[in-house]
């Protein structure tokens, strides 16, 4: 009975979508490699700029924990990436890479866009 209860509790925790606390830090270089390898750029672009297929993720204010939570249980059309595909540690690295992406130039500093405006 005890064993069954433990299994049930584990299942409940998994179903709740609450990931374990992620490792601190994160390796942005490895995150970049994983970002490309695991096809994040397909929808979010190599600069994290987003587009019609996925939201911008560059410079989006999230912490690693909320980032991982979202990847595990995304909204919209994004597929859920389980821990069988990317571990929390790997997602922390990807988060570190995403956070390292440079912010956009100001529209005011881009003549082609100011002309359109």
């Amino acid at each position: 009975m005890t064993a069954l209860l433990i299994v049930a509790l584990v299942a409940l925790l998994q179903a709740s979508g609450q990931p374990a606390p992620p490792p601190a830090g994160g390796n942005a270089d490895n995150g970049k490699r994983l970002y490309i390898k695991h096809t994040c750029y397909f929808c979010h672009g190599t600069a994290g700029q987003g587009g019609v297929a996925g939201a911008r993720i560059a410079a989006v204010a999230r912490n690693a924990q909320s980032f991982i939570r979202y990847v595990r249980q995304p909204g919209g059309q994004m597929p859920a990436y389980s821990s069988k595909i990317l571990s929390d540690e790997e997602l922390t690295d990807i988060f570190a890479y995403v956070r390292s992406l440079p912010p956009a130039k100001s529209v005011a500093d881009i003549p082609l866009l100011t002309q359109i405006k």
Binding site: A47, K105, V107, L113
Partner: peptide, 8 residues
């Protein structure tokens, strides 16, 4: 236009 500036 602000969105267009990302990844410029």
């Amino acid at each position: 236009l602000e969105q267009a500036s990302w990844g410029w």
